[in-house]
Amino acid sequence: MAPKAKHLLEELSRKGPHPVLRGDLALVGLPGLVLTPASGLGLPAVAFGHGWLQPPTRYRELLRHLASWGIVVAAPATHAGPLASHRLLAADLRTALDVCTGVRLGDGNLSVDPARLGVAGHAIGGGCAILAAAMDDDTGPKIKAVATLAPAETKPYASEAATRCTMPGLHLAGGRDLVAPASGNAERITHAWAGPVQLRVLPKATHLGFTEGRHWSNLLLHGKADPATHRTARALLTAFFLVHLAGRTEYEPLLTEDVKGAAIQPAPA
């Protein structure tokens, strides 16, 4: 690992400088969580999609971490059942971004720049983030960056939607993921991506390694919460969104260098 990348990984795996406020999207008609820095104007915002059967609370520390680095994060709690609509969850991610840009946050000392919007998600939520980014809507949010954790295929197909994604993409996959293996979903999505894209494989990560705490769905899905996976994912997602949404170019080395346990995969031929 290059010394600069190692230093940035250490820095961004720790909590950021901003106190964090937590709110409820249900107050504006969309169930879910919103976490924000305590103050700031023209902030970037990210909508986060949950995995299959997972409540947004299973990603709370990741969302809090991003907020501590100056990013507003909204996570809809919709379509969490076994027969969830991927198309509608993708639409809810876009609605969450509309809420962030159009609703007064905090005590009025917070605002989001509509030119600094991103989406992210785990598993099915990652696939839905791609669907949201690819939606052709002249009046909706213009998504500038997409990050996924163990992305899973959706219907409509995320891999097909990726051909319309010209914004930067970062996809993290688990080397021990038996549900959405890197050699299938993440590679297919990465190969189809229309814009600049990077795939990293965390060799020891399982499908649920990106989640937090315990949940009854652990009886159905492979893996469990893993602190090492959390640490690496938090640092990489933070760097990715700070660079591409906030213009913080000092964190670019973490996105261009291999880091321990998350090597950059070769570009598609």
Results as ranks from 00 to 15, higher is better:
residue 206 T to K: 05
residue 219 L to S: 12
residue 152 A to H: 10
residue 56 P to D: 00
residue 43 L to M: 02
residue 232 T to L: 13
residue 3 P to G: 01
residue 31 P to Y: 02
residue 55 P to T: 03
residue 174 G to Q: 01
residue 154 T to H: 03
residue 16 G to E: 00
residue 8 L to P: 00
residue 26 A to Y: 07
residue 60 R to K: 12
residue 161 A to N: 10
residue 189 I to P: 06
residue 71 I to G: 05
residue 26 A to T: 11
residue 40 G to Y: 05
residue 91 A to P: 03
residue 186 A to Q: 00
residue 65 H to D: 02
residue 129 A to C: 08
residue 268 P to H: 07
residue 113 D to R: 00
residue 99 V to F: 15
residue 14 R to I: 07
residue 181 P to I: 00
residue 138 D to I: 11
residue 201 V to G: 07
residue 131 L to R: 01
residue 131 L to K: 00
residue 209 G to C: 09
residue 68 S to K: 00
residue 245 L to Y: 04
residue 198 Q to C: 15
residue 188 R to H: 14
residue 38 A to Q: 07
residue 239 A to Y: 00
residue 192 A to H: 12
residue 236 L to D: 04
residue 186 A to N: 04
residue 198 Q to M: 13
residue 139 T to F: 09
residue 150 A to N: 07
residue 96 A to Y: 10
residue 64 R to F: 08
residue 161 A to I: 07
residue 11 E to F: 03
residue 138 D to Y: 10
residue 28 V to C: 06
residue 188 R to G: 12
residue 78 T to K: 02
residue 75 A to F: 08
residue 24 D to C: 06
residue 140 G to A: 06
residue 71 I to P: 05
residue 167 M to D: 00
residue 158 A to P: 06
residue 103 V to I: 03
residue 190 T to F: 08
residue 86 H to T: 13
residue 91 A to E: 15
residue 215 H to A: 14
residue 201 V to C: 09
residue 253 P to L: 07
residue 217 S to V: 08
residue 106 G to R: 03
residue 122 H to F: 01
residue 12 L to S: 01
residue 123 A to T: 07
residue 225 A to T: 12
residue 261 G to W: 05
residue 222 H to C: 11
residue 148 T to W: 09
residue 210 F to W: 13
residue 263 A to E: 12
residue 32 G to T: 04
residue 47 A to P: 02
residue 267 A to E: 11
residue 201 V to W: 01
residue 100 C to D: 10
residue 56 P to N: 04
residue 220 L to W: 03
residue 88 L to T: 13
residue 64 R to Q: 14
residue 253 P to Q: 07
residue 166 T to W: 12
residue 185 N to G: 13
residue 171 H to V: 11
residue 258 D to I: 08
residue 105 L to T: 07
residue 91 A to T: 09
residue 121 G to Y: 02
residue 53 L to C: 04
residue 191 H to F: 12
residue 43 L to A: 02
residue 180 A to N: 12
residue 140 G to N: 07
residue 188 R to M: 13
residue 139 T to R: 11
residue 99 V to L: 15
residue 196 P to N: 02
residue 229 T to P: 06
residue 128 C to A: 09
residue 73 V to F: 10
residue 167 M to K: 03
residue 94 R to G: 09
residue 84 A to L: 13
residue 267 A to W: 04
residue 40 G to A: 11
residue 97 L to G: 10
residue 207 H to V: 02
residue 6 K to I: 05
residue 212 E to S: 15
residue 155 K to I: 13
residue 4 K to M: 06
residue 70 G to W: 01
residue 161 A to W: 03
residue 25 L to N: 03
residue 24 D to R: 15
residue 71 I to M: 11
residue 118 G to L: 05
residue 157 Y to I: 10
residue 144 K to M: 14
residue 47 A to H: 01
residue 224 K to S: 14
residue 151 P to A: 08
residue 151 P to R: 10
residue 123 A to D: 09
residue 123 A to P: 01
residue 156 P to C: 05
residue 228 A to Q: 15
residue 209 G to P: 02
residue 49 G to F: 05
residue 224 K to Y: 12
residue 75 A to D: 13
residue 269 A to E: 14
residue 154 T to K: 01
residue 215 H to R: 11
residue 246 A to V: 02
residue 19 P to L: 08
residue 137 D to Q: 05
residue 263 A to V: 10
residue 257 E to A: 07
residue 236 L to C: 09
residue 22 R to A: 15
residue 220 L to E: 09
